[in-house]
Computed example of a mutant assay.
Amino acid sequence: MSRLFKELTPVHVAQERFMKIVRPIDRSERLPIEECSGRVLAEDVISSVNVPHYRRAAMDGYALRAEETLGASRTSPILFTQSETIAPQTCVRVHTGSPLPLGADAVVMIEETEVVDHDLVEVRAQVHPYENVSEIGEDIKRGELVFHEGHLLRPVDISVLASIRLTHATVHQKPIVSIIPTGDELIPRERREPPGPGEIIETNTLMTELYARKWGATTNVSKIIPDDPKSIRYAIRENLGSDMIILCGGTSVGEKDHAPRVIEEMGRILTRGIRASPGKPTTLAEVRGRPVLCMPGYPVAGYVALQLFAKPAIRKLAHLPELPENRTKLPLKEKITSRIGYLTFARIKIEDNTARPVMTSGASILSSITRSDGYTIIPENTEGYEKGGSVEIILAE
């Protein structure tokens, strides 16, 4: 394999190639519903009960016969006798959720009544049959399909599962993502001694692991692998039981960038270099049916690769639906320059309702992301944006 990038692939083409080999996992597990928020159902949920299972008052007030309130108003109230049971011209005090007394078919709200004696109640509004009454199964009927397989469970959905008396739910398992940091220059962040000249604290793995978990995966993190083809090959082979592999570093054209060559021997390369700035050295591959992302070692370039490829791949593996990104449009405070022929990710700081460019280059400056509120994407055929022009900003997660 040549050490040079022979032909860079447009980002949208690289994404299409990569996502074609990503297949949702087919494993499921049964969990207590308290642990299911943010998980995806692996089967339909059908209710075996009615909700509510009894006729109940939907408001605080008085249960009565609706027909006996005909003509009632504030200027012409109708008197009812408060009782424990329903009889002609009687009413029963009820609260929201109270069983509706036998013989009653409506509830007049407490605001539309006034007690004029200890057992006499003025009703000052007419009600219709079934008004302010929840019927059996009004919310959910026995046998009703409550959620389809593939539904992303939210906290409110968990409450619904509890209301139909479910204690567990069958959900798709989270995909397993293996993360392999490579590089002779890397040292573990746990090491007590400060880094010496030529040594770099390994942080890409931490960023990658936290994003992978945020996007719906569980992670296996390898120890730092030296720039040695045999060691890289062994690390990949040891992680083929996972659903996706992410290699951090070793993807460029240096003498020690062995990862693409090793992967080509073990599987197939889909893309070797993309038209993105930062992010150009990104390599995408497949090894024994597993999608493999080789992200650049420079942290900002790695961040871009994660956003472009790891995020949609993990969500697809996990059966998670695509969600729109949080975006906003603001005028530019300063001009942004970009590189023609490359999809450019310009980091943006929002100040006084305007967008100030932080930088478009500097793939190694991780703090440029933390100083930003998001980024704007400049198309390949555009040579930057002028000051004052409106740009769309993808807000940082």
Rank of each mutant, 00 (worst) to 15 (best):
K6P: 00
V13C: 08
E16Q: 12
D26Y: 04
R27I: 11
C36L: 04
S37I: 13
D44K: 03
I46G: 08
V49T: 08
A57L: 15
A57P: 05
A63W: 00
R65Y: 05
A72I: 04
R74N: 13
T75K: 10
S83N: 09
A87Y: 01
Q89S: 12
V92Y: 00
T96D: 10
G103V: 03
T113R: 14
T113D: 12
V115D: 15
D117V: 03
D119H: 10
L120W: 11
V121D: 10
V123Y: 01
V127N: 04
P129I: 05
P129L: 05
Y130A: 15
Y130R: 14
S134C: 05
E135P: 06
E135D: 06
E138L: 03
G143I: 05
E144G: 03
L145D: 05
V146E: 08
H148T: 01
L152M: 14
V156E: 15
I158Q: 00
S159E: 15
A162D: 13
A169V: 13
S178T: 03
I179G: 06
I180A: 07
D184V: 03
R189V: 01
E193D: 11
P197F: 02
E199D: 02
I201R: 12
I201L: 12
I201G: 13
N204A: 14
L206H: 13
M207Q: 08
E209G: 00
L210W: 13
G216A: 00
T219P: 01
T219C: 11
T219A: 01
S222T: 02
Y234A: 09
L240Q: 15
G241D: 14
I245Y: 09
L247N: 02
V253R: 04
V262F: 14
E265N: 15
I269F: 10
I269T: 09
P281D: 08
V287L: 14
R290Y: 04
L293H: 02
M295P: 02
M295V: 09
Y303S: 13
P312H: 06
I314H: 02
L317A: 02
N326Y: 07
R327F: 08
L330I: 12
K333E: 15
T337M: 07
S338K: 03
I340Y: 13
Y342F: 15
Y342R: 14
L343I: 09
D352S: 06
G362D: 11
R371M: 11
G374L: 01
Y375N: 01
Y375R: 02
T376Q: 01
T382E: 11
